[in-house]
Design a protein around this nucleic acid. Structure first.
Lengths: 374, 374
DNA sequence: GGGACGAAGGGAAACGTTTACTGTGCGATC
DNA sequence: GATCGCACAGTAAACGTTTCCCTTCGTCCC
């Protein structure tokens, strides 16, 4: 024993009496992460002292601290987060659940979430559902197992009864586990639920967009809306109609289309409208990628934007400024959406109530709209 | 006692003899996640039986199973992953460390990583470094604590000596902890290191791009390269020069520029080249966003693409097809890059050696290049 | 000179699982 | 009819930390 001879009590044992699978001791350093006991024995102190030295919340003599730190260095010791979580408290991660990460808007939400989470010392778990509700169920379950501090469900949905039921279930299950459900860009299923809702003003943004077109003298606006039923789609449609009504413009049924948020959908609907001989001087696409399709169809038809037809989008994705012409669109604060969601979920005081917030949207005027009265 | 009366043995106790902070039992369900002991006591069995019932790796009578499942349901029990990790083995997460998540190419890598990880039953931790080496150090450390199965460092770098040292440290530290360092899109710091490298053929892609321009009759190609020193930038530059050499075209120093991978850089360099009166009939931008800037500058100068100047990009970001004109570019299999990285890191057999793979890149011909000899 | 006190450190419980051991009955086998 | 084996269930050790509680030792104050 290499005890420093000042005590009869046994020095902390190197290993437990329990069996060790590994027979040759030389391998121990190689493939098994070193534990606090390894550090303790190497430093000739107890595990309690090592823990306290590293935590720095307890007086430790300089000499002991030095020995412990040296042992930590030489063993490349890092704490085992599972053990730490099991005993002391560990800040749970933030879980981000979305349909897909590659879309520019969702990527920005993710960036905001990651940044705010990191600022608060949390890790971010990112998962894609690919629009599969069963997968969403599994993920919420999984996040409960992981003790996630908050579970963020991001992206527009069809708010039917099944959706409400699922969200209610999630909210309660997470709440019971001390976590928090956060709905980002999707509606609350019911009032007084333990849920945080962070949304943005779809309706107001669409209102601004269409108002801008109407104020520029356009009267026949082809609306390339999102899917009917989808929350963001319906809200943007409502904002569009609000604006028509507010400006006393008749709502032409045939100009009010619905479809998916894809380039293809924008392309097809615009092309078909042109083929059908519909008259319009402007297009309001309910998303920038839809606008992309519209621009392609218009260009193909030999129409100039904004010379012949004006176009407005929605989202303000990064490339909107680089299109020809640069796209007038509605800016959605996606990154701020993510940050706010994390902030609200984590800094929630003991208020058990639900909390909602709606971030504003804002028209960004570029070059894809022409004033007709010029 | 609601025991079913068929045994004298004491039913498992409800709680441990140890002290409980909570005094009023009614609160127990509310804020503390229920444990396997809660389930066991509710079902009138031992914790071992509950564990085995849930794991399904041990014979359990139908009646017992039903009771356990009922208890699980009613208590909304989920296993505590930390406890599980401490005892049996739990598949560690995959950690993805990158400069920023919002870029289209990195987002696609992330999507590939997430998908492959999910397919293998792993969670994905996503972190942004914002190009801060110290943050990268912290994250690697953090991932070691988290027992990540693999740590993926994604994105081009300046491979200087400090970089090598850091990567070597990471590789060894992670390897010692049973994890694996994976470098994606960046070079290996040294041979025979426990590291997995997944890269793509920057040089070959650039060679194809410039070759395409030269084969189309262009002789003076403005090269908008990436930063000198940056691995991907240097490789693409090398590929470009290879092609010039292969086609016997003189390398004109003034046409070979370096800068950042930003739209602004592409814009400024193209504008300056035009102002300086440099003669060129084609532009090869070392990334699509740089091409975006070039397109804007050309347009501003009243030049038509591809009528007056041809343009080729690199990356094949999603919007490349939607530009005016659609952009001829080099496709990089970003998503596959992510998938491959995870696959290689996780399905690595006991081969302790380093393993490298280079994915191919491929020219995608669209409408931004004109044949000069027509 | 004696007690109080603070600094420093150790022992061991507790966190929630999994699983190796140990029993039990009970039907089948010789 | 004793025995073997199997289905089923419980006990307890182990996983790696943190922290409560206890001990020791030196100082300071009256």
């Amino acid at each position: 024993m290499t005890d420093n001879g000042n005590s009869e009590r046994p020095i902390p044992r190197t290993g437990r009496p329990g069996k060790r699978k590994r027979t040759d001791a030389q391998q121990d350093l190689r493939d098994r992460p070193s534990t606090i006991r390894d550090v303790a024995s190497k430093a000739g102190v107890s595990v309690a002292t090592v823990s306290r030295t590293l935590a720095g919340n307890y007086p430790v003599s300089d000499e002991t601290r030095a020995r412990v730190m040296a042992a930590v260095e030489s063993l490349h010791y890092v704490v085992n987060v599972h053990a730490k979580a099991l005993s002391g408290r560990v800040a749970g991660p933030v879980a981000l659940v979305m349909k897909d990460i590659t879309g520019p808007s969702l990527a920005h939400v993710a960036a905001g979430v990651e940044q705010e989470a990191a600022d608060r010392g949390r890790l971010s778990l990112v998962c894609a559902t690919h629009d599969d509700p069963a997968r969403e169920d599994d993920l919420v379950q999984l996040m409960r197992e992981q003790h996630a501090a908050a579970v963020l469900l991001v992206g527009s949905v069809v708010p039917d009864e099944a959706y409400d039921r699922r969200m209610i279930g999630y909210a309660e299950a997470l709440n019971a586990a001390g976590s928090r459900l956060v709905l980002v860009g999707r509606p609350a299923p019911a009032p007084d639920l333990p849920v945080t809702v962070v949304d943005y003003d779809n309706r107001g943004g669409a209102f601004q967009a269409t108002s801008h077109l109407l104020a520029s003298g356009h009267r026949r606006v082809l609306f390339l809306g999102g899917e009917t039923g989808l929350s963001s789609g319906d809200e943007r449609r409502a904002g569009h109609r609000d604006a028509l009504r507010a400006h006393g413009v008749d709502h032409a049924e045939e100009l009010d289309t619905a479809g998916t948020y894809t380039r293809a959908s924008g392309y097809v609907r615009t092309r078909d409208a042109l083929r059908a001989g519909l008259e319009f001087t402007a297009v309001f696409a309910a998303s920038d990628v839809v606008a992309l399709g519209a621009l392609a169809a218009l260009r193909e038809a030999g129409l100039d934007v904004p010379g012949d037809v004006s176009v407005v989008g929605f989202d303000d994705v990064p490339f909107a400024t680089d299109l020809t012409p640069s796209l007038t669109t509605v800016r959605v604060p996606y990154e701020e959406l993510g940050r706010t969601a994390v902030r609200m979920a984590l800094s929630r005081t003991q208020a058990p109530a639900d909390d909602h917030v709606v971030l504003g949207t804002q028209l960004v005027i570029r070059r894809s709209v022409r004033r007709l009265d010029w």
